[in-house]
Write a protein that binds this DNA or RNA. Structure first.
Length: 596
DNA sequence: AATATGATCAACCGCAAGAGC
DNA sequence: AGCTCTTGCGGTTGATCATAT
């Protein structure tokens, strides 16, 4: 067992060999890596692939522990790493992702090809400190962070409540993480909260007062465009044009803990009251309203996956636009954000094109100074650009013969949808009721429910047994030992943006079982979200959620599907009828057959 | 020029999940 | 079921560089 020395990390002072630790006679080195060590590690990975990091020391004599090797590889040596500052688009994407995910660096990194979680984390912490010192809000006013939507009066109760909930180890773990994030975020999003006990060294700032900066009067207001109030359950995008970040981001994760046991969790919170007060007192905008935010849900990922496989969809990837339920940024508001008096490093880095990158295969965002976005401000044109991936920037010639399935899971890129989102103009989309993919959009705010029901219907009709074990939906690679073709195809999808080899680039390559499994699992989560939405929003008041416990929450989708007859048209119809009579984004579970 | 401060980077740590036995 | 090992994640720390005073 490696016995690390106490205290924090940090590089050695002499550029390398400061801390030596003993591992059963083997002296393991700490501190900065040397070029020779890098070469040893790279050669090892080149030959053996990633994984089994502890074997590196055994097989190569490299005096580094496995953890250190893995970190070094993932953050510095692996191919396709982007070096250099974040581009402006990347920065904005980080902000949006953080608003959605919190301190989920690895998941954010998955959205930023070539970037590591460590980079993002460092960037964010630096930004955090800077903005806090300057009294600026962390997020532009148009980005409503997940946690900021949380109702304050319940936060402490929830915290206490969560501490009492330790029924499920898995759940408890994620609750701890949520608590952790929540705790941190509380520090700067809860103006009236008491100062938490934070280490002085923490980059996290103390609470930012509501009016911390007169130059940012909208810091804590909720400027929520009406267009953004479309039911985020809907798999269809609102009329609001998609920002590049929205196009790139994937939907936020499903609730990791039981949404019913924690009805006011962080995922789908209700609106804090302080903002209302602030808005009432400080916002002079006569048109300002304080609409309740939409139920914070997203299109069922299962549906997204299903639609990927729709060969008739003109753009396979376009459907995977995030509804960004916590950051409904309209184009206008997006540009307004860009013109905020932020001392943003964007101005220094937005034109960075990664020209110094040593990796020819490194993907880079090509900032297309397109004029397709209406320029409403005097900001530079590139700030209005949208992602336009340059196919020529993805010439992949991997340095190492690394197995794709062995790439770090946090670097598996999501299927991005930068391209061709503007095939239709906004007006065209609106006039034709099209979403960004050109698919007709339902106007129903209950469309998610409909979709869930439809899926349940399909599943019920199929009547086949499904694996009940939940699979982690995060884009983690399959088991290393499983080198079947399915995995190959899986990664053909995942790495489509990286690899120019012929076997890539279509989600249709997903094998049916993969797709089914994905759908099944995502549907479970969608249902959980739906339930959570009902319990959390407070607008579904039939009491269903109050009697649902953790035990019966973990229902297999088959069970859910079995609740419906094979022909559940009536159910969907009833739901539609319900919706037609209710513009309040509500769907009552009482309207569903089999759930009463 | 010396010092202080801030920003960035790279590395460490502990913890937890998952796989395998 | 319980243990061990591996892996991954998020938080933290300290060195180094840049800039301001």
């Amino acid at each position: 067992m490696i016995m690390y020395g106490g205290g924090g990390g940090g590089a050695g002072k002499d550029g390398g060999s400061t801390n030596h630790i003993s591992d059963g006679g083997v002296v393991l080195k700490k501190g900065p890596w040397t070029a020779a060590e890098d070469e040893i590690l790279a050669a090892y990975v080149r030959e053996n692939g990633e994984g089994n990091w502890n074997a590196v020391q055994k097989n190569t004599g490299l005096a580094r522990c496995g953890k250190s090797c893995r970190l070094r590889w993932a953050n510095h040596l692996r191919p396709n790493l982007k070096k250099g500052s974040f581009t402006g688009d990347e920065e904005r994407l980080i902000i949006q992702l953080h608003a959605q995910l919190g301190n989920k660096w690895a998941r954010m990194a998955a959205q930023l090809p070539g970037r590591t979680d460590n980079e993002i984390k460092n960037y964010w912490n630096t930004r955090l400190k800077r903005l806090h010192r300057q009294g600026l809000p962390l997020y532009p006013p148009d980005i409503i962070p997940n946690h900021q939507l949380h109702p304050h009066p319940h936060q402490q109760q929830q915290h206490h409540h969560q501490q009492q909930q330790q029924h499920n180890h898995h759940q408890h773990h994620h609750q701890q993480q949520q608590q952790h994030n929540h705790h941190h975020q509380q520090m700067y999003f809860q103006p009236h909260s008491s100062q938490p006990n934070t280490p002085s060294s923490s980059p996290l700032p103390s609470p930012t007062p509501l009016n911390a900066n007169a130059n940012s009067p909208s810091s804590f207001t909720f400027h929520t465009p009406t267009a953004n109030l479309l039911h985020p359950l809907s798999p269809h995008t609102p009329n609001t044009p998609q920002t590049p970040s929205q196009l790139c981001s994937t939907p936020p994760p499903p609730p990791l803990s039981s949404p019913l046991s924690s009805p006011r969790n962080n995922q789908y919170p209700t609106l804090p009251l302080f903002a209302l007060q602030h808005s009432q007192t400080n916002n002079n905008d006569a048109n300002f309203t304080f609409p309740r935010p939409p139920p914070l849900l997203q299109p069922p990922s299962s549906l997204l996956a299903k639609r990927y496989n729709n060969a008739n969809t003109p753009l396979n990837c376009i459907n995977r636009v995030s509804t960004a339920p916590f950051s409904p940024v309209s184009r206008e508001s997006y540009t307004s954000f860009l013109t905020l008096p932020y001392p943003s490093p964007t101005s220094q880095t937005a034109t960075y094109h990664n020209t110094n990158n040593n990796y020819s295969s490194s993907p880079s965002f090509s900032l297309n100074p397109s004029s397709s976005y209406p320029t409403t401000t005097s900001s530079p044109s590139y700030l209005h650009s949208h992602y336009t991936p340059s196919p020529t920037s993805f010439h992949t010639s991997p340095v190492y013969s690394m197995k794709q399935e062995q790439l770090p899971s946090n670097q598996i890129p999501q299927i991005d949808a930068y391209n061709n989102i503007n095939n239709f103009t906004d007006n065209e989309r609106q006039n034709h009721n099209l979403n960004s993919s050109g698919v007709h959009r339902r106007s129903s705010s209950c469309s998610l429910l409909e979709d869930v029901l439809e899926e349940a219907e399909v599943l019920a009709a199929e009547g086949r047994d499904r694996p009940s074990k939940r699979r982690n939906l995060t884009a983690s690679p399959p088991n290393h030992n499983n080198n079947n073709n399915d995995n190959d195809n899986f990664f053909s999808v995942s790495f489509g943006h990286y690899d120019s080899s012929d076997n890539l680039c279509s989600l249709q390559d997903l094998k049916p079982q993969e797709d089914e499994s994905l759908q099944m699992n995502t549907m479970q989560e969608d249902i959980a979200k739906l339930l959570d939405w009902g319990s959390d929003s407070g607008e579904i008041s039939n009491g269903q959620s109050s009697v649902v416990t953790d035990e019966n929450l973990v229902l297999d989708v088959h069970q859910f599907a079995s609740l419906f007859p094979a022909d559940s048209t009536a159910v969907v119809t009833a739901t539609n009828d319900h919706h037609n009579n209710n513009n309040n984004n509500n769907c009552s579970w009482g309207d569903m057959q089999g759930l009463s």
